[in-house]
Design a protein around this nucleic acid. Sequence first.
DNA 1: ATTAGCACTTGAGAAAAAGAAGTGCTAGGA
DNA 2: TCCTAGCACTTCTTTTTCTCAAGTGCTAAT
Lengths: 333, 333
Amino acid sequence: MLTKRQKNLLKLIVGEHIKSAKPVSSKLICKTLKCSSATVRSEMATLEEIGLLEKTHTSSGRIPSEAGYRYYVDNLMNPKEISGEDMLKLQIIFNNQQLQLSDCITKSLQLIADMTNYTTIALGNASHENRLKEINVVPIDTKHMIIIVVTDKGHVEHKNIEFDNVSLEEIKKIISLINELIVGTPIDEVSSKLEFEIKPIIGRYVKEHEIVYNTIYNVFKDFSSKNINVVGRNNILKQPEFNNIDKIKNIFTKLDEEDTLRKIDCIEDIENENGNIKIFIGKESNIDDDMTIIKTKYHTQAEEGTIAIVGPKRMDYDRVVSLLEYIKSNLEN
Amino acid sequence: MLTKRQKNLLKLIVGEHIKSAKPVSSKLICKTLKCSSATVRSEMATLEEIGLLEKTHTSSGRIPSEAGYRYYVDNLMNPKEISGEDMLKLQIIFNNQQLQLSDCITKSLQLIADMTNYTTIALGNASHENRLKEINVVPIDTKHMIIIVVTDKGHVEHKNIEFDNVSLEEIKKIISLINELIVGTPIDEVSSKLEFEIKPIIGRYVKEHEIVYNTIYNVFKDFSSKNINVVGRNNILKQPEFNNIDKIKNIFTKLDEEDTLRKIDCIEDIENENGNIKIFIGKESNIDDDMTIIKTKYHTQAEEGTIAIVGPKRMDYDRVVSLLEYIKSNLEN
DNA sequence: ATTAGCACTTGAGAAAAAGAAGTGCTAGGA
DNA sequence: TCCTAGCACTTCTTTTTCTCAAGTGCTAAT
């Protein structure tokens, strides 16, 4: 159990380091803590022993360790009021009755990336969580049409197709077969189901219209259902801890991989949590030891998903947490 | 007019520099050129005087200047045969009859980005070049529907919408009004046309169904019609000339701006061209003095667009040009 | 016209020196 | 027992100096 002064000290150090990105010296702290630098130094030594602080070299100031941030986040942080300015900008988005939910998400994450200089991520459901609800075809002209696939989670994807000698009727026939037979199948299994369960049944028909069948097969094969949106990637370049090409390369590569992003959704919940906000610090982030991910899930009748903010370990936890809470609650109403 | 030997020398220097990314010394060249290094040096001095070569410092080897690359590209380069391996991979894409044109583009650009370690860009038409062809609504269930907007250039965008107390009939009424009245309008003008020309006409109707009107208004307001696809952004991080955070920041920012990318489509044609391939070297690229853009337009009955490859000024011109030519001709057939 | 030879320039890297920022520890005071 | 002033010590950072390697430019001879 930490003493009151130790908690205060840790809080100050985290705060200072977040501001300056540099190790924090005893001298700087002693002014605010109203005691001598020597006293601060001995307290710092204690906190280092416990594992909450670190030095970058023997005679440097202290920086918070991963455990230090964790302690801060779990015990010391008190989410700031959102500033009037931030609040106002967000309200403009959420009060706009004409915007659909997905627009609100996109716009607010865009806004937050700009305001904070961090990176934001919106994660919809993965393809195995989406089941085929309906497939539809809309003719455009004699040669072109659009195939629309809708999933039970409300995800929609379309694909333009072009045929030379195929009538709309023929396509509608296959489409209605699919609607009858494989609605409810997880999207990522539809193409194999088509191949192994449907094709044999409608075998004779398929032979006559192989092109149509193949095209539809491909619609599902490529159906991304990725439903992932990363905004403000380049903000990472603004943080001093990422001023090294190899680090950047690693981070950008990870942010491009669907796998990495999906994992944000699944990573084990760390013990303590603030409401439904979950925080993954440093190694926990699975991206880079110097990064933190703060995420939350939102649930509405229509849709559910995850929004996350990614930034340096040295990120402004108070602000980000309150922003996320605010967005979550707005999305849910 | 350059002598034969000077041309040869320039070609060798460009080739070497592309390979090594370092200044090229007279000693290295003299072996292949079958004369002494002193001779090479004096020729180098001449070429520098003309402005085709540069030094990084007084006693360094030479690198091609921007004009040097230009001369190379316009006069010396002979596009390589595409290697068997590259050719094979591309053929797999183009021979796949089931793929739609847009898939071929996506896949081949993805492939080329991987093969070359450069960045590829596919540019469709800008929104002012797309005119509204048709708007359509597909009901999903009682509350949800999808609005589909199709343009004359074949671009399609959809938007999910959700209503509480609106019947499909009401929506169809507005939709058909739009289809009657403003088909043919450039997409980026539709929303203002709705507001200033259509709304007054159907004013009474709109008042009763403001939500429906507003939603559709927003569909067009946000209609991105961006139609831009950048693949292999992170490859830029692999090039030694971009090992500096500020440069990276600048380049990545530019590659995120629609404006910059659109400009690729419009930049003035530089004099000489290889077929329909256009090359913008260094400053000409408008992105970064150390970058080159190589682009070409493709035209099919259905669609036209631009594909571009972006990489360091020191890029493998021969290979990229032949790859682009190959893709262009395949897309057009 | 070409080349061998040599003086000269510059960058890159190592080593040395000086300075700044902090810490840890000790001993004395509240 | 806790706090603090003071000082020795460590490490990083920056600057300076040196040395080396890689190249060039020029000149005189072929």
